[in-house]
Design a protein around this nucleic acid. Sequence first.
DNA 1: ATAAATCGTTCTTTAAAACAGAACGAATAG
DNA 2: CTATTCGTTCTGTTTTAAAGAACGATTTAT
Lengths: 295, 295
Amino acid sequence: MKLNYHHLYYFWQVAKSGHLTRTAEALHVSQSSLSQQIRQLEERLGQALFIREGRQLHLSEAGRLAFDYAETIFTQGEELSALFAEGGHAHREVVRVGAVATLSRNFQEGFVRPLLGRDDLDLILQSGGMDDLLRRLSAHKLDVVLSNQPVRGDSEHPWRSQRLARQPVSLIASPNLSPPPTFPKGLSGHAFILPGVENATRHAFDQLCSHYRLTPKIAAEVDDMAMMRLLARDTQHIAVMPPVVVRDELHNGTLKDYGALPGVWEEFYAITIQRRFESPSLKALLTRSGESLLD
Amino acid sequence: MKLNYHHLYYFWQVAKSGHLTRTAEALHVSQSSLSQQIRQLEERLGQALFIREGRQLHLSEAGRLAFDYAETIFTQGEELSALFAEGGHAHREVVRVGAVATLSRNFQEGFVRPLLGRDDLDLILQSGGMDDLLRRLSAHKLDVVLSNQPVRGDSEHPWRSQRLARQPVSLIASPNLSPPPTFPKGLSGHAFILPGVENATRHAFDQLCSHYRLTPKIAAEVDDMAMMRLLARDTQHIAVMPPVVVRDELHNGTLKDYGALPGVWEEFYAITIQRRFESPSLKALLTRSGESLLD
DNA sequence: ATAAATCGTTCTTTAAAACAGAACGAATAG
DNA sequence: CTATTCGTTCTGTTTTAAAGAACGATTTAT
């Protein structure tokens, strides 16, 4: 037996105002009809939503609960309705991309680049924390989340993490460092700017160091790639990061790539919710080869 | 003309599976009926939701949009339905309190204390960032948010900020500080642990200092009250904070209150959404006098 | 190549629901 | 203590959703 949304709607309206007769007038239905529909909803749910005290209606605890749900349901519905009402015009395609705020901006740009030239669609880019972004993804406020970590989905949150690209991780520093650092030997005297410990790249780097019995001096731990880029530029320390982050600086000579670390990769994932009808533009983004994202 | 939620429901089901006939069977209705209801929805919205290609249905851009809304609407509905289905039992009262994570724990506890003894209701306490909490409040996932700052509501977010209490702010430090600090003179040689600049208390403190032409040495800026408490306890610096935060330490002599700062207050606000039927327990919490919250 | 099956739409009839109106009862107001 | 207000219940009416048959288009099978 299905929930009757029209009954719920009437309940919502009455609960909002607290008066049956007034609501009936506002909705242009008879109070008798309204009363009946609400009673049917109560029978369907198996519990009283209103407490009848004299000729007044008060929300019961169950009613309060139902009201909260009704509120989100029908505000969504009204939003939808308004969206279609405002313009009879056809809807433009929209692609909404969320990106973990600590992710490389160059990578983000590379991902959405194919969409930038198109004037037949709207691109919405939002950054934020992982939790926040995943919540928005679940609420269908985002189409895809970009992250440097995969996420395991479960039955409640059927997320799908797809690796878009992997990028070697290099030693990046000022070009006039002397002696020039090399890996694994030739690091003494230098301090490092590293990704934070929650980062998978950092984990790989630590493993590599422990393999070569190295205990590098740590100048800073930074989780934001944009911040790391600034620190690499403005200090004499060695940053451990993918070259793509500092593409411009490498090109104009502000920074130098002292070589990739073997077996250490920064990975990029697209997290989506599996759905039957994917936006064709988004689908195209996700099925590209990894190289084009990083050049 | 109102949006028909039954039509939307059918649309949602068909859009999920992509097949009209199969969905009709699953819902135990005829495919003709299903087809008609969806057509009526399209007429109501003024746009095609499906693109008919041969005998296949594809979501149009408008359809994709509508589908996202339908998804949140009906998952909410199903959640509601499940909630009432699982137990025919009467629903216990629930009060859901959100608190800004940086807020004093003692204050939080004082706020919810009247509810702790009651076994006829469930108390849900969540902490998080202001943005996150306000979002949950708007989504009716929380009944009230506790904060040390008021929030201006608007027509879209009709928040109401109510001041629950104000608390003097004192100089708090180790009891064996010598010379004992006094305000405004007698602070030289001491360093301070201060709330972060986004905190209203910090602002008042800075104003006070500038009035007395003081430039205090800052040892640390901390936005989390629990953290501040630890630092006050484990350093020889002077913390600027309300005594309520360190009530226990003051009582057992671990810390000492060197006097309140004139005109500096830490304020506590309850942020709610105005509604017709407030939970009686919550209402009782909000109408208490401020004193009982802080003792 | 052509018949058969599949799938969605449209038209018409039938069943179900939402609805309005009247009668009723209880609580509030003058 | 009588009017009025407000929610409920009962009955007949109207509207809406549903089913069935006919149709057209596309895919599959022979």
